[in-house]
Design a binder for these strands. Structure first.
Lengths: 231, 231, 231, 231
DNA sequence: TATGAATGAGTTTTCATTCAT
DNA sequence: AATGAATGAAAACTCATTCAT
C-alpha cells in the first residue's frame, strides 16, 4: 500500500522525467501526492475537527509519510486551511452550471433552493467543515483568499430574482437578499449538520434519504410562501 | 455568574472576608464546588470543543484544583457529559413557563417561535455545545439519560398547536410536527451557530443585536406563512 | 452498607459503653473495624501486590472510610505489614495441633508434609503474600516481630524427626534439616504460587482439585524416598 | 550485554567518540534502540514489578527518551509483554543445546535437572518475572504467542526419558511427565524466587553460591530417587 | 522527492495522604 | 470514633514537529 502505485513503470534510467506528464504511473508525482494528502485530510478534519484530527492518523491513511505532509503544507493548520480552500473551491465549479438568470423568478427561486438543498445534502464534509470553522470563530477561512469573493455571487443571484419577482408583481418588496440567503442556508444546513443530536432526540435522522424528498419540497414551499406577495 | 449560595451564614469567625462575596469562605461545600467546576467547564468546552478544551485550563479558572474535577466527574469526558446534561436541563425549566396551550393557535405558534429564537439568541454556549456534539456524532448526549425524554414535550406542543389550528380552519393539515420543529430549529440555530462564517462571507454578523428584531420577525413570519391554510 | 452495622442499638445516652463487649451490634467497635479493614486489605494486597493495591479500592470494600484506615494503620505500608503479621500469625495456631513428636519418624514425616501441602493448597492468600514479599526483598516481613521466631519451630520438628529416624535406622544421616524444609516448601509452594503461568504453559492448572490428591501423594512419596536410608 | 551491532562502520565524521563502545555514535539504529530499551525494562520490571516499575525510571536509564518507549512498544504494558517475550525466548535458545536424547535415561535426567537448576540459579530476572506474572494471573504471558508452543518441548524430553528408563527397567512406570516437570521446576524455582523470605526466616540465603553445589546435588538426588524403580 | 526514527513540551489521569467537620 | 471533601506530587501517555539518511 505505502509503496507507491500498483503498476510502477520500472525506471531503468534512474532519471525521472522532468516533463509534467499527468500520468499516475510515475514514481514521484508531487501533484498526485498533494492531492492524496488533501483528500485524506478532508475526511479526517471533517470527521474529527481541527483539534480532534491527528496528524499521524492522516499520514497513516496516505500513500506517503508524515514528513511529506509538512513538506507540502507546512503545518497541521496549513493543511487544514488547504482543505478549506479546496472544499470551497469545489462549490464554485458547480454553481456556474446554474443558469438561474434565465429562469422566471419563481422557477429560479425554486432552482436555487433545490440546488442549495442538494448540495448540502450530498456534501456532508463541506457542512461539517463549515461547522468546525465556526467553532474556531472562522479564523482560518478568513485567510482563504477565494472565500470572500465567491459568496457575493449568490447574493447577486438572489437580488436579481427578487427584483424580477417584484417587478412581475409576484414577490413582496420587503425582503433583504442576505437575510433570505441566511434563511435558505439555515433550512438546508441544519438538517445535515445537526442530524446526530436531532436523530438522538427524536429517533429520526433528518438527513435520511427517506425524508430527503419531503424536506426538499417543504423547504422550497416555505421559501416560496415567504417571498410571495400576498394580496 | 458566581451567584453564591442562597443562605449566607453570618460571619462568626472574626476573619473578615476580603472578597465581596459574603459566603465564599466556606471551605467545604461540595455543591458549590461542583457548580463552580461545571460553570467554568461549560465555558471552556463551548469555547474550545471537547478535544480543544484543556483540563488544566478549566481547573485554573476554578476555585479548586484539577484533582477535584476528577473527584467529582471522573474524567474529561465525564465532565463534558455533565455539562451537556446541565445545559439541556436548563432549557426544560424555561419551557415549563410557556403556557402555549392556553393561547390560540396563531399566537401560540408565534410564542413558540419567539421563545425558540430568544433562547438560541441568548444561549450561545448551548448552541456551540450542540454543534460540538454533532461533530462527535452525538455519542455523548446519547448517554445522557435525561436527554431523550425531554425532547418529546416540544413535539407534543407543536402537535397540539397544529391540530387546534387545523380544527379552527387556520392551518393546513399536511404538516408533520417533527418536520416543523426541525424548520423552526434550523431558522433559530443557524444564525447563531454559523454566524462567524456567515459574517466573514457577507460582512454582516447575523447574530448582531441590530439584526435581532428583524430576524425574529422574519422567522415568525416565515413559519406562520408556512403553516397557514391558503384559500 | 457504609453506615455501620445493620441493627444499631439506639444509643440514647450518647455515652458509649466503655466495657469491651464482643458485641457486633455496637455502633463504634474499633476492634471490629480493624478486623474488617484487615480482612479486605488481605484480599486486596494478595490479589494486587503491594504496589498494585489501591488504598481507595480497599477502603471502598470496607464498612468504614479511608480515613479510618490511616487512623488505625498509619499508612499503606503499615496496613500491608499488619496484613503480613496477621497471616503469619494464623499459621502458628494451626501448627500447634500437629503432635508430630508423638508419631514415629515415617508417619511424622508424612504428617508434616501433608500438613504443609494442605496449608499451601488452602491458603492461597498466604502463598501470594509470601510471593509479593519476595518481590520486595522481604523487607516488610523483616519488621514483623512474630516472624523469625515461628520458623525455628519447624526446623526443630524436622531435626527431631530426622534424628529419630536415623536412630531407628530408617533415615539417612546426611540430610540437613533446613535443606529438607526448603525442599518440602518448594514442592508445596510452587504448584500454588505459579499455577497461572504453569496452567498457561501446559493447559493444566496444577492447583486444580482434581490433581490435589495425586500431587499430595507424589510429594509425600518424593520426600520419603529422599530421606529413606538405602541399603 | 550491550554487544553493539555486527558491522561497525569506520568513523568518517571526524567527531571522536568519547564512549569506549566503538559504534555508539550511530544515531539512527532502531534495533539497537529497541534492544537497549528492552534490556533496561527487563531489569526495572524484574526489580519492581509491573505496577511498581516507572516508565520514567526506565527511560532515564536508556539511551533514548520516554517517547521512544511508546514509539516502539505502545504502552507500559506493551513493553512489559515484550520483556516477557524476550525472556522466555532466551531459554529456548539454550534448551536446544542440550542433547538429552543422546544420553542414557539416568544421565539424561541428571542433565535435565542440572540444566534447569543452573538456569534458574543464574537467571534471577527470569524467575522474578515469572513470579510477577503469576501475581497478575498470567494474563500478559497468555498474549505472548511464542509462549504456549515452546513449553511442550520439555514435556516431550521428559516423556522420552521416562519411557526409555521404563524400557530399561530403571524407572517406575507410574510417573506423569507434566507432574515430574512441575516437581523439578518447584525444586529449582523456589530456592531462587523465595530466597528473601527464606533467608529472613532461617538466616540462610538458599541461593547463596555456597549452598549452590549442595542444593544442586540434593535436587538431582531427590529426582532420581523419585523416578527410580524400586525392587 | 521521500522516509522513518527521534523528540520536547504538554495533557490527562492517578495516588497516597491530610484537612475540616 | 468517624466522615467525606480536598490536595500536591507524580505517573502514564500524546502530539505536532524536526532530524538524519
Amino acid at each position: 500500500m505505502k509503496k507507491g502505485s500498483k503498476a510502477a513503470e520500472p525506471d531503468t534510467t534512474g532519471i525521472a522525467s522532468s516533463v509534467p506528464r499527468p500520468d499516475a504511473r510515475r514514481k514521484y508525482d508531487p501533484e498526485q501526492t498533494k492531492r492524496n494528502i488533501l483528500e485524506v485530510a478532508t475526511q479526517e478534519f471533517s470527521a474529527m475537527g481541527l483539534t480532534g484530527a491527528r496528524v499521524d492518523a492522516i499520514a497513516e491513511r496516505t500513500n506517503t509519510t508524515k514528513r511529506m505532509l509538512y513538506y507540502y503544507f507546512g503545518s497541521k493548520e496549513g493543511l487544514y486551511q488547504a482543505v478549506l480552500e479546496k472544499v470551497y473551491g469545489d462549490i464554485r465549479a458547480l454553481e456556474q452550471d446554474l443558469h438561474i438568470s434565465e429562469l422566471d423568478p419563481v422557477e429560479g427561486m425554486r432552482a436555487l433552493v433545490e440546488f442549495t438543498f442538494d448540495y448540502h445534502d450530498r456534501q456532508r464534509d463541506f457542512v461539517r467543515l463549515v461547522t468546525i470553522e465556526n467553532i474556531h470563530g472562522a479564523k482560518y477561512v478568513e485567510q482563504v483568499k477565494s472565500f470572500k469573493g465567491r459568496n457575493v455571487t449568490v447574493i447577486h443571484t438572489i437580488e436579481d430574482l427578487l427584483s424580477r419577482g417584484i417587478a412581475a408583481g409576484l414577490f413582496r418588496d420587503d425582503v433583504d437578499a442576505i437575510d433570505l440567503h441566511l434563511m435558505i442556508s439555515s433550512l438546508c444546513f441544519h438538517r445535515v449538520g445537526n442530524r446526530h443530536t436531532f436523530g438522538t432526540a427524536f429517533g429520526r435522522d433528518p438527513s435520511h434519504p427517506r425524508l430527503r424528498a419531503r424536506h426538499r419540497a417543504m423547504i422550497v414551499d416555505a421559501v416560496l410562501r415567504f417571498v410571495r406577495k400576498e394580496d
